[in-house]
């Protein structure tokens, strides 16, 4: 009921239909396949902040690779609007857990990478890149190389880089997973500020329940491997949220219980 009301009037941006993913295992003794995703179906709506939440190693990264088009599903299909996603494309941006900046490029070089590769007019792409660098709070660091930045600052660059192509959807694959707890809390607030400023659809993957409830408009709980959708939750808490508010703790507890059952 709540879900019906939530999606009313919203346009589906990403539709994932019955996706399965198997990896071939080549062993000395046997050849076989390992199923990571088993019949995953979900929809992502325009400008919502969706968190894919599931236990570690449950196939979340495989799911993101397929949704973003970097990897093909073994069965099933993924659509962005009416177009099937079959390969990587600039309509979708990705922020990585390993951050994956180009170490030989400066902050500006990294942010400009996409627009430059596409051959966008230089002055225009430079202006937009500067805007994004300012947005993520890195003005003054344009000419710094990633190696001289802290983990949190690097991921800010990663976020700006993903925004630079103005994608319709942003996939964030445990983007703060490699950061320490303090930086993580700060980055969670930062990502919401950036999200409010540059409204895009965000698909955020995490295995941290606190992070999930803090950020999400909607949480999709995934089963452990082979994964599929276990349950969905609409999180209608006002932002900014408090980690210790009774409602917050209540939701958190409920999802944790459901996840334990899912395991």
């Amino acid at each position: 009921m709540e879900y019906q009301k939530y999606i009313e009037g919203r346009k589906a941006v990403i539709t994932c239909k019955n996706v399965c993913k198997e990896f071939d295992i080549r062993d000395r003794k046997q050849a076989g396949s390992f199923r990571v995703i088993d019949d995953l179906s979900l929809s992502i709506y325009e400008n919502e902040f969706v968190v894919l939440f599931g236990p570690g190693e449950c196939g979340k990264t495989s799911a993101i690779n397929i949704l973003s088009g970097l990897d093909r599903p073994t069965a099933g299909s993924v659509f962005q609007g009416d177009t099937q996603i079959t390969r990587p494309g600039i309509e979708r941006g990705v922020v990585y857990q390993s951050i994956a900046l180009f170490p030989w490029l400066t902050v500006m070089g990294n942010v400009e990478f996409g627009p430059k590769a596409r051959g966008i007019d230089r002055t225009q792409s430079r202006k937009r890149a500067q805007e994004l660098i300012n947005l993520v709070g890195l003005q003054g660091f344009e000419n710094a190389f990633p190696i001289s930045l802290s983990g949190g600052m690097r991921q800010r660059v990663g976020i700006a880089r993903a925004y630079a192509n103005d994608p319709e959807v942003l996939f964030m694959d445990e983007p703060f997973g490699a950061l320490d707890a303090q930086t993580r809390y700060m980055m969670e607030e930062e990502i919401l500020r950036i999200y409010e400023h540059e409204k895009r659809t965000v698909v955020f993957v995490t295995n941290n329940i606190e992070e999930a409830v803090f950020l999400a408009d909607r949480i999709i709980l995934l089963k452990s491997c082979p994964t599929s959708v276990k349950q969905e939750y609409i999180i209608d808490l006002e932002r900014p949220r408090s980690y210790t508010a009774p409602r917050f703790l209540e939701i958190r507890q409920k999802i944790t219980r459901d996840m334990d059952k899912a395991l």
Binding site: L70, V94, F102
Partner: peptide
């Protein structure tokens, strides 16, 4: 992962060699 990131950002196969692999 860097190769994947470059592809997602709109890098063609040819650009990949000069913009990612060689550097």
């Amino acid at each position: 992962v860097l190769v994947g990131a470059a592809k997602m950002l709109g890098c063609s196969e040819r650009q990949l060699t000069f913009k990612v692999v060689l550097p």
